[in-house]
Design a protein around this nucleic acid. Sequence first.
DNA 1: AACCTTTTCAACCGCTTTGTC
DNA 2: GGACAAAGCGGTTGAAAAGGT
Length: 311
Amino acid sequence: MDMDMETSEISGGSCKLQNDDELDLRRGPWTVDEDLTLINYIAAHGEGRWNSLARSAGLKRTGKSCRLRWLNYLRPDVRRGNITLEEQLLILELHSRYGNRWSKIAQYLPGRTDNEIKNYWRTRVQKHAKQLKCDVNSKQFKDTMRYLWMPRLVERIQASSSASGAAATISVSPPLSTIAATATAPNHAPYNYNNFEFGPAGASQVTGSNYTTTENSSAAASSESFGSTQVSDLTEYYYGGVPIGNTGNPNPDYGQTGELSYSDSMSSLDMQTMKPNNSCSNYQYWGGDTSDNFWNVENMMFLQQQLSDNM
DNA sequence: AACCTTTTCAACCGCTTTGTC
DNA sequence: GGACAAAGCGGTTGAAAAGGT
């Protein structure tokens, strides 16, 4: 949940650094006024040189704090909202490749921040490892991800694309992990998963025909339109129709056909047949977190088999 | 409705890397 | 090449929301 940015002065959070009376530096949640100041200053002068930027803008914040706020929250191309199936798949794959190098992983997910990916990993993925009582870095858990979780994600992506009329372009064979293992490192050429082509943002953008999302396009549009125009109200500073800094779901696609939450992607699977147990129209968008369903008896059996195989 | 627990994620901290003089 | 500052990164924290009883 986002901080309530409508609250100008957050009680308790708007503390000053205790030993910074001279500097009068603030910390804690950013206020709407501070956001506007930062947005307008960067619109006029550009980003970088964060310490001097903070001073020049009149923000009583450290440069680090300004940088973080801008990169993780205020930047026009920050993509907010649920991690899509494709993104989940990418994160799992990239994490198996890069480990906890979140900024590296974030390069492949345009608009996503390292912080967001890190939070996703810690709250969702590590949670399951904990439930399975195994280490997130253990071979067992990695195998479960690779041979169970990821293939099903691929199936879910295929199912949702075909249900929505879009051409399904992902094939499950060979395993994505195999591709990743032999793929060239980023910076370099993006790796291609059939029609999905991923690459570090900036260097090589996503070019997969079906990977273009409405978020991407709106983010790109807002990014381009972001100029030196002064913003006087955060509601003017829209990201896809919902102002950045607003609470709730800033993602314009929330609840729309074709994008499933992580939880739903798992709960909609029929674990016996490994197929969606309902039509796409029946997906529970933004329902409760039922992702735990994924880790049912069958999956536990799979894991146990993995464990016994390794003995 | 009230209380407690769990989950989420923005923001901070401290360390490392990079840039500048 | 050493010293310092700034930027970048990953780990951690804690407030608020959501969920459960």
